[in-house]
């Protein structure tokens, strides 16, 4: 067990964890921030996506010891009032079905739009292919990303 100071959504947190504990479990089990989801544990499904210095990163495969002084953003910190353009677009298109993967989808999409404010279909496919949705909401996800891009 070791002590780490990590910055999440602009706030510093002290956590006691083993060095190999993935950030996902630090968030969920230690800090009680449960918007970031567990899906596969091997960076294959994207449900646990957070921003690591602005880059979409699978928190299930990022050991807490590797976080160091980087800035982490989770779904809880994406917007102050749940009104990020993507959250609004997700609502407008009624994207979610079960909704479980959607926070990860939104975090991946937010990282994409920061890099590329008006992505093409193909660019969206490339950026989002790491995020699985078993309910099959891909079409609406794509439409919502375009809507959010248009509004930006």
């Amino acid at each position: 067990m070791a002590q780490y100071t990590i910055r999440i959504n602009g706030k510093e947190h002290q956590v006691d964890a083993t060095p190999d504990m993935p950030l996902l479990w630090v968030l969920r089990d230690i800090l009680g921030m449960r918007g970031t989801k567990f899906g596969c544990g091997k960076a294959l499904c994207g449900a646990c996506t957070v921003h690591f210095d602005g880059v979409a990163t699978r928190s299930c495969s990022l050991p807490v010891s590797a976080v160091q002084s980087s800035e982490i953003t989770t779904i809880e910190g994406l917007s102050e009032n749940g009104d990020h353009p993507l959250q609004q677009a997700w609502t407008e298109h009624v994207v979610p079905q079960c909704g479980y993967c959607q926070t990860g989808q939104i975090m991946s999409a937010a990282a994409l739009l920061r890099e590329n404010p008006s992505p093409t279909d193909e660019e969206i496919d490339n950026a989002m292919q790491g995020n699985l949705c078993r309910c099959g909401t891909y079409n609406r996800i794509k439409a919502a990303i375009h809507t959010a891009a248009d509004k930006k």
Partner: peptide, 13 residues
């Protein structure tokens, strides 16, 4: 629209 929409997109569901 589904009733849980806002909770889902903000991670509160």
């Amino acid at each position: 629209p589904i009733v849980d929409l806002q909770d889902i997109v903000t991670g509160n569901a």
